[in-house]
Design a binder for these strands. Structure first.
Lengths: 126, 126
DNA sequence: CTTTCATATAAAAATTTTTATATATTTTCT
DNA sequence: AGAAAATATATAAAAATTTTTATATGAAAG
């Protein structure tokens, strides 16, 4: 009973639904979610912990980063995940998506070295 | 988004899951649920109101009684209702079921007139 | 020594439970 | 039949509990 309750509780929060909606398109690290939702990092981590404990997301550590993705390993959760995600009105997360796109764009592009602002040395990121 | 959240919130409580599980087998009035769950009536009414507002149950008034049943009118709710109900471990509601059976049995059976206890006049109830 | 993330904790907000009260309807009594 | 009592349910207010948010701190990686 408790496991079932934890699953429904995990879905019962707007921030967590926004996170799940973003994860629909693939794995994201905590910093991506912070940028997309414009919320402080401990808040994102708190909600990710609840999703993780309900086994709705899985995490993968890689260097400094922790990447989160939807847990598709069992039918019940998969059904809930996709039927919920599908019912989140696009309007309510359009901005999240926009900020995510922008942030990911910057990450894979080039950025100006902080320490050499004047001479503007460019370097590849990731 | 809010509607979706209200649905998941409605499922996120043990008392409400117990109620839904009992309603699986058909319509019940508030007093049936009070007897089955052994909880005070305002508590049951409170949780029924939440289920009603999430459109997971429908009510029907008949004399003194209000009968509640699962709302099977839309697909999404029906899917959630039955997949959740199915996942409630039987052990966790066996007693509820037993008390419900007992209570329903007494209701449709015979009862001893209060005023004529000695001469034990029996009469049909309902 | 900075970035990324998790965890601990305290304050704030939301939910649940309890207690009390109100309303409607049926039953009982005269 | 009509008044009084009992029953079924809902709702409101108060108290208790849980959840969420904000802030601080710490660990690991590079």
């Amino acid at each position: 009973m408790e496991e079932l309750l934890n699953i429904f509780k995990a879905f019962s929060d707007e921030t967590r639904l926004r996170i799940l909606k973003l994860l629909e398109h693939g794995e994201l690290c905590v910093c991506d979610l912070v940028a997309a939702l414009e919320l402080v990092q401990p808040k994102i981590s708190f909600h990710l912990a609840i999703l993780r404990e309900a086994d709705l997301v899985k995490d993968r550590k890689e260097g400094k980063w922790t990447h989160y993705r939807l847990n598709e390993s069992d039918m019940f959760r998969r059904m809930l995940l996709y039927s919920a995600i599908e019912r989140i009105p696009v309007g309510s997360i359009a901005q999240d998506m926009a900020r995510l796109e922008k942030f990911l764009g910057q990450k894979t592009g080039v950025k100006i070295e902080k320490t050499t602002k004047k001479s503007a040395v460019l370097r590849e990121v990731r």
